[in-house]
Write a protein that binds this DNA or RNA. Structure first.
Lengths: 337, 337
DNA sequence: ATGAAAGCGCTAACAG
DNA sequence: CTGTTAGCGCTTTCAT
């Protein structure tokens, strides 16, 4: 393992000069520069990054917080973000909080110990008040989630609009008994979607019915369960808005098992535009979220923050959603469109 | 940002003593220990990890190489590996090679620059000869892939057995015209599966037919395409082995579109036991791969290697696959179970 | 049981 | 344009 000292000695120059050519500084004569490069080649020299980190007070590593990788939304984010980051010579550390406040806190310590230059929180578990103090140690940006009181960059999707266009699509198909299905109350994401849902209902002159609301559906199994609950209802809904394609898929799969026709007996709309939406029969109408654009913007903003060392100012970037109409909401029977 | 010096001063002791309590060394009197801890609390002190890395010649970071995150096999690996790693206080850097030799090489430099302690290659693009020299800088272990000449740990699944049980299942259903579909020739994975496929065929006394072989199917779209090719054949196969559930899903979806009945007209078997196998109608028969076990073993072996500093010895760990029988291969028509 | 001092490998004043 | 020197923050001999 050769060091800068070895290179300097071999080239017959000082460490400073070697350092200058490593970092592309001006004011190095072409001759010495070549000398240094030759010496580096001979020794197979590569600068030690721990030493550089210590000296430069930065590691060129960014941490991304997600609850877990195996969720298409988050894995797509990781994929896009890593692609962008590697293009700028940043490495990406994955932090899975597992929905645990404690794990999230443990990971935040990476900032304190200076193992990373910044944190992108695509999910968060703790109250902002407990996260905020870590800003002293480096930039934190919020991605996909919105916290009103936080004075940091926030990159997010217009969830309300997403909920709105999905529901509007349902009402415009003539539905008025529309169920609402999502995962969790708390998150700003769910809340915004529900606002959009209600807005579309209101516009169509239909009342929101609490008995049609299911707020604990995250996964395939949940979709199946919700369908079973729903089919037992007196006067069941004719359409349902779900917060995720997996949930919609589970619901459709179960509905078919019980002989229901989707979309004729029940129109189902998903969320995320995952691959699975094109595989089920019927193909699932859904809402496309521009995850890649969001991830790229997140990196861009993060890099700026790291360079400018300004951790404390608000900055909002919103991206729109898009409705993707497939078969699970378009009744052939009614034939209205 | 307080340093060890600050703590020492506040506690009225030397840096050495503070360092000793940080690292739980013996020979520190209880009294001084408490003094130090109080000082650390007051200052909110946390050791700087760049400084430690420089001094200790290790970063507690492991890199995982995969082609891309958005593939259930790899994202599951990442998820499991990160869970295990965080339990041992290791961080995980994700390196997406994008199937590019050049990118892979760039990432290998992380080892040279000492930014990471070791590399887990779940995929690899370059010849072993070009990877091997990097062993000088730290441990590299192979996961899921096997390279005969490599003198490093290899954690892998019994792919041949996987191919075998899947195909055996098909022949035992009475099929003799069985197509073979996989992604890529080269990889040890595909080759082993094909050996298993041929073995099962041989046992059943049927000949391998090259015209039934499709070796460029990676994704949903490919499955659809392969079906279209296959249905035009004179004397098409009655069953098909695919190297991935997505491919199987695409095939089934397309087959249904053309009015074919799966499994009666064509039995389809997948690989991976992804969630989607339980959602399609028919549900997909597939092969379960113990990815989580593999990831856990990979971490265990990696940690050992890092600690022992022995980068150059062979070590093999094999895990078995399991057949998961669902509907896509069980013809109700024939009713032979 | 505790401390003084050297040094991990690098970069940036500062001087020339 | 080039070199000398002083650290970045930590751990570890080696004394005491």
């Amino acid at each position: 393992m050769s060091t800068i000292e070895d290179v300097a000695r071999l080239a017959g120059l000082s460490r400073t000069t070697v350092s200058r050519v490593i970092n592309n500084h001006p004011y190095v004569s072409a001759g010495k520069k070549k000398l240094v490069q030759e010496a580096m080649d001979i020794l197979g020299y590569v600068p030690n990054s721990s030493a550089r980190s210590l000296r430069n007070q930065k590691t060129d590593i960014i941490a991304v917080f997600i609850p877990r990788v195996m969720n298409p939304f988050f894995s797509q984010f990781i994929e896009s973000f890593e692609n962008a980051a590697s293009g700028q010579n940043y490495q990406l550390i994955v932090c899975q909080t597992q929905y645990s406040q404690e794990k999230e806190l443990t990971y935040l310590n990476l900032l304190k110990t200076r193992q990373i230059d910044g944190v992108v929180m695509v999910s968060f578990e703790n109250d902002w008040d407990v996260i905020e103090p870590f800003l002293e140690y480096g930039p934190i940006i919020l991605c996909n989630e919105v916290v009103e009181k936080a004075q940091v960059p926030m990159i997010f999707l217009d969830q309300q609009y997403g909920g709105y266009i999905a529901t509007k699509h349902l009402t415009s198909q003539g539905h008025s008994k529309i169920a609402y299905c999502c995962g969790g109350y708390r998150s700003s994401v769910s809340m915004a979607r529900e606002r959009g849902f209600r807005q579309a209902l209101t516009e169509a002159g239909v009342q929101f019915e609490e008995r049609y609301a299911f707020r604990n559906a995250f996964h395939v199994e949940d979709g199946k369960r919700v369908f079973r609950e729903l089919k037992e209802m007196t006067c069941p809904p004719t359409a349902i808005f779900t917060g995720g394609d997996e949930v919609a898929a589970g619901m459709i799969s179960e509905a078919k098992k019980f002989g229901w026709n989707v979309p004729d007996d029940l129109a189902v709309i998903g969320f995320d535009n995952q691959e699975i939406t094109e595989l089920l029969d019927p193909m699932i109408t859904t809402v496309y979220q521009p995850v890649e654009e969001m991830a790229h913007k997140a990196l861009e903003v993060m890099v700026q923050r790291i360079q400018s060392k300004r951790n404390y100012s608000l900055e909002k970037h919103e991206f729109p959603m898009k409705l993707v109409i497939r078969e699970s909401t378009i009744s052939k029977k009614l034939a209205n469109v």
